Simulated assay, not measured.
Amino acid sequence: MSWDTIFLAANYWAFAGWLALAFAPRGPKVLALILYLGVFLLCAAYAVMLVGFLTGTIDAGGEGGGSFTTLAGVMQLFASPGGTTLGWVHYLAFDLFTGLWIARDADNKGYSRIVQLPFLFLTLMVGPVGLLAWLVVRDRRARALAKAT
C-alpha cells in the first residue's frame, strides 16, 4: 500500500469521526464508536507505523534519520512520505480526541450543538486554536457550575 493511500485513508477515517461527532446523536454508543473506531484506530495505525520505522521493518520512503532534538532533525523526519504520514496521523488522532473531549465537555455544561460547531471546526482545522478558544469560553460556565455544587 502506498503512503498516499495510507494518508488518504487516515484522512477519510478521521473525517468520518468528525462528521459523527458534529452531526450524529451523542449517545454513549456513538461516543464510544468515535473513541474506539476513530481515535483508537488512528492511534493503533500510528503505533504500527512508528514501531515499523524504529525497527526498520517499514520503509519510510526517504533518506531516513532525523531526531526530535533539533529543528533540522524534525525536518528530516518529515522529509519522507512515511514520516509525513506518521506525523499527520498523529495530528489526526489527537485532534479527533480533543474534539471528542470538547463535545463531551460542552454537552455536560449545557452548550447547544450549534454553539459547539465553531469550536469543533476550529479544532479540526487548527487543533490548538480550537482547544484554546474552547478553554476560554468554557471557563466562565465551568466556574459557575462549580460554585453551584
Rank of each mutant, 00 (worst) to 15 (best):
M125I: 10
M49P: 05
G130F: 01
F97T: 00
T70W: 07
G65L: 06
K29H: 10
W18R: 00
M49H: 06
P28G: 09
Y12A: 03
V136D: 04
F94T: 06
D4R: 02
T55K: 08
G61I: 05
R141Y: 11
K29I: 10
R104S: 09
L86Q: 11
S80K: 08
Q116A: 09
G73E: 15
A14I: 02
D95G: 01
F68W: 09
A146N: 13
F68K: 03
R113E: 11
F97A: 11
T55Q: 09
V30H: 14
L77I: 10
A146S: 14
P118D: 01
S80E: 09
M1I: 00
E63P: 11
T84G: 10
P28L: 07
G83H: 02
L35Y: 06
T70P: 10
L50D: 15
R143S: 08
R140T: 07
P28I: 10
R138V: 10
V129G: 01
T57P: 05
S112F: 06
L19A: 12
T5M: 03
M125G: 13
Q76T: 15
F40C: 07
I102M: 03
A148M: 13
R26C: 06
D107P: 06
G66L: 08
F121R: 07
L131T: 06
L117C: 09
E63M: 10
G52V: 07
Q76M: 15
I58R: 04
T69N: 14
D59C: 09
L131D: 02
V129S: 07
L92T: 01
G66K: 03
G27D: 14
L96P: 04
G127W: 03
V136Q: 08
D139S: 08
N11C: 01
L35M: 11
L19G: 11
